[in-house]
C-alpha cells in the first residue's frame, strides 16, 4: 500500500513537472509550431478528416442496417436473444488493436479491414438498444395494434420501430462515437484517416502532427456526439408534438 501511494505520488509529480516544463521552458513554441503546421498542411489535414468521416459514415450505414435487423429478429426469439447479445458483448470487449490484428490475416491491410472491425464493434450498442427498445414497449400498445387488425409486419413498421426509435438512436450515437476513436486506430492497418497523422507523428517525433491528429479526432467525436444528441431531441416523438390551436 505504501509502495502504491509513493508510486502514485511519483506519477503525479512527474506529470505536473512534465506539463510545467513543457509549458515554461523546454518547448515554448509548441502552440505556434502547431498553428504553423496546421496552416501549412491544411489540405492534407482536411483530406484525412474527410477520409476519416467517410470511413465512419460508410461503416455506420452498414452497421445500422445489420444491427437493426439483428435486433428486430432477436426481439421475436427470446431464448436466442441472450446468446446473440452475449456474443456482441464479447466482441465489444475485445481490445480494438486485437480485433484489427485478427482482421489483418484475413482481409489484409487496408480499408476493408477497418470497415469489418468497426461494424463488429458497433453491433452491441445498436443491437442491444433495438432489442430493449422493442421489448420494453408497453405491451398494451402492441396488443391494441394487433387487436385493431394490423398484421405483424405493420405492427413492427408502424408501431414498434417508431416507438423504439429514441432508444435505437441512443445506441447509434454510442456506436458512432466509439467508431470515430477506433477508426483512428484502424489507420495503423491502412484504413486511412486522421489516425495516420498520430501514428506517423509518433514515429517521427513530430509533435504538431500528433496534436493535429489527436485534436482533430477529438473534435469529430465531440461534434458527432453533440449532433446526434441534438438529432435525438429534435426528431423524437415529443419534439414533433405541436400544440393544437383552436
Amino acid at each position: 500500500m505504501d509502495q502504491f501511494i509513493s508510486c502514485m505520488g511519483n506519477f503525479f509529480s512527474r506529470a505536473v513537472n512534465g506539463i510545467v516544463l513543457s509549458a515554461q521552458s523546454e518547448d515554448p513554441g509548441i502552440i505556434m509550431r502547431t498553428i504553423d503546421y496546421l496552416s501549412r498542411r491544411s489540405d492534407l489535414i482536411l483530406d484525412l478528416m474527410l477520409e476519416h468521416l467517410w470511413l465512419v459514415v460508410f461503416t455506420l450505414v452498414i452497421a445500422i442496417a445489420v444491427s437493426v435487423v439483428v435486433g428486430v429478429i432477436i426481439s421475436y426469439y427470446e431464448s436466442f436473444a441472450q446468446t446473440v447479445l452475449g456474443i456482441c458483448q464479447v466482441l465489444m470487449v475485445i481490445p480494438s488493436m486485437a480485433m484489427l490484428a485478427f482482421m489483418v490475416p484475413i482481409f489484409g491491410i487496408g480499408f476493408t479491414t477497418g470497415v469489418v472491425a468497426l461494424v463488429l464493434y458497433s453491433l452491441l450498442p445498436i443491437v442491444r438498444n433495438t432489442y430493449t427498445g422493442i421489448r420494453e414497449l408497453d405491451p398494451a400498445i402492441v396488443e391494441a395494434a394487433k387487436g385493431m387488425g394490423m398484421t405483424e409486419r405493420r405492427v413492427l413498421l408502424k408501431i414498434k420501430l417508431p416507438l423504439a426509435r429514441p432508444v435505437i438512436m441512443a445506441g447509434i450515437r454510442t456506436a458512432a462515437v466509439m467508431m470515430i476513436g477506433i477508426a483512428a486506430i484502424a489507420a495503423y492497418v491502412g484504413a486511412g484517416g486522421l489516425g495516420e497523422l498520430i501514428f506517423s507523428g509518433i514515429s517521427r517525433g513530430h509533435q504538431p502532427m500528433i496534436i493535429a491528429g489527436a485534436i482533430g479526432v477529438s473534435i469529430i467525436a465531440v461534434a458527432f456526439d453533440y449532433l446526434l444528441y441534438w438529432g435525438e431531441k429534435r426528431f423524437s416523438v415529443e419534439g414533433r408534438t405541436r400544440e393544437v390551436t383552436e
Partner: peptide, 30 residues
C-alpha cells in the same frame, strides 16, 4: 466530453506533454 475523446488521442496527447515510456502510458490510462 472527456469520455468522448478517443483513447488513442488521449495517449497521443499525453505523449506530446510527457514523452515516451511505461509510466506515461500508465498515467494516461489512469
Amino acid at each position: 466530453i472527456g469520455q468522448t475523446v478517443p483513447s488513442l488521442a488521449v495517449l497521443a496527447l499525453f505523449y506530446t506533454v510527457l514523452g515516451l515510456g511505461f509510466r506515461v502510458a500508465v498515467f494516461a490510462l489512469f
